[in-house]
Amino acid sequence: MLKAEKVLNAALVAGETSGDLLAGLLLDGMRTRWPELHSVGIGGPQMAKRGFQAWWPHDKLSVHGFGWEVLRRYREIVGIRTQLKNRLLAYKPDVFIGVDAPDFNLDLEAALKAQGIKTVHFVCPSVWAWRPERLEKIKRSVDHVLCIFPFEPELLAQHGIAATYVGHPLANVIPMQPDRAQARAKLGLRPDDPVVAILPGSRESEVRHLVDVLFQAAALIGQARPAIQFIVPAIPALRPRIEAAAAASGVGAALRVVQGQSHTVLGACDVTLIASGTATLEAALFKRPMVIAYRMSAMSWQIMRRKKLQPWVGLPNILCRDFVVPELLQDAATPQALAKEVLAWLDASAQDPAKIQRLEQRFTALHAELQRDTPTLAAHAIATVLQA
Rank of each mutant, 00 (worst) to 15 (best):
E5H: 12
E5G: 11
N9H: 15
N9A: 06
A10Q: 02
V13M: 14
G15M: 10
T17P: 00
L25R: 14
L26H: 08
L27G: 02
D28T: 08
E36G: 14
L37W: 14
L37M: 11
S39R: 06
G41D: 06
G43A: 00
G44W: 07
K49F: 00
K49I: 03
R50F: 05
Q53W: 04
W55G: 02
G67K: 10
W68N: 07
V70K: 03
V70Y: 01
L71G: 01
R73A: 11
R75E: 13
E76F: 13
I77T: 04
V78H: 08
N86T: 10
L89E: 11
L89P: 07
A90P: 03
K92R: 15
K92H: 15
P93S: 12
G98M: 09
A101C: 08
P102V: 06
F104M: 08
D107A: 11
L108E: 14
E109A: 12
K113L: 13
A114H: 13
Q115R: 15
Q115K: 15
G116W: 03
I117M: 11
K118A: 15
V123F: 06
C124L: 01
C124I: 08
P125Y: 02
W130Y: 15
W130P: 00
R131I: 12
L135T: 14
R140D: 15
S141A: 15
D143C: 05
C147H: 02
C147Q: 06
C147T: 14
I148K: 00
F149A: 00
P150Q: 00
P150I: 09
P153C: 00
L156S: 04
L156E: 00
I161N: 09
L170Q: 02
N172H: 12
M176A: 14
P178I: 12
A181S: 13
D192G: 05
A197C: 14
L199R: 01
L199W: 04
R203T: 12
S205T: 15
E206H: 04
R208K: 13
L210W: 02
D212M: 03
L214K: 07
G222L: 05
Q223T: 15
R225F: 01
P226L: 03
I228N: 01
I231Q: 02
A237E: 12
L238M: 05
R241M: 07
A244E: 12
A247E: 03
V251W: 05
A254S: 13
R256G: 06
R256M: 03
V258Y: 13
V258D: 10
A268W: 01
D270K: 05
L273F: 08
T278V: 14
A283W: 00
A284Y: 08
L285P: 10
K287D: 07
R288D: 11
V291T: 11
A293K: 03
A293E: 06
A298Q: 12
M299P: 00
S300H: 04
W301E: 15
W301Y: 11
I303V: 15
K307T: 13
K308C: 09
N317A: 11
D322H: 13
L328Q: 07
A333W: 04
V342G: 08
W345Y: 11
W345P: 02
L346P: 10
A350C: 04
I356P: 02
I356Q: 04
Q357N: 09
Q357A: 15
L359T: 07
E360V: 09
F363H: 14
F363G: 01
T364H: 02
T364G: 11
L366A: 00
Q371H: 12
Q371D: 13
A378T: 02
I382M: 03
I382S: 05
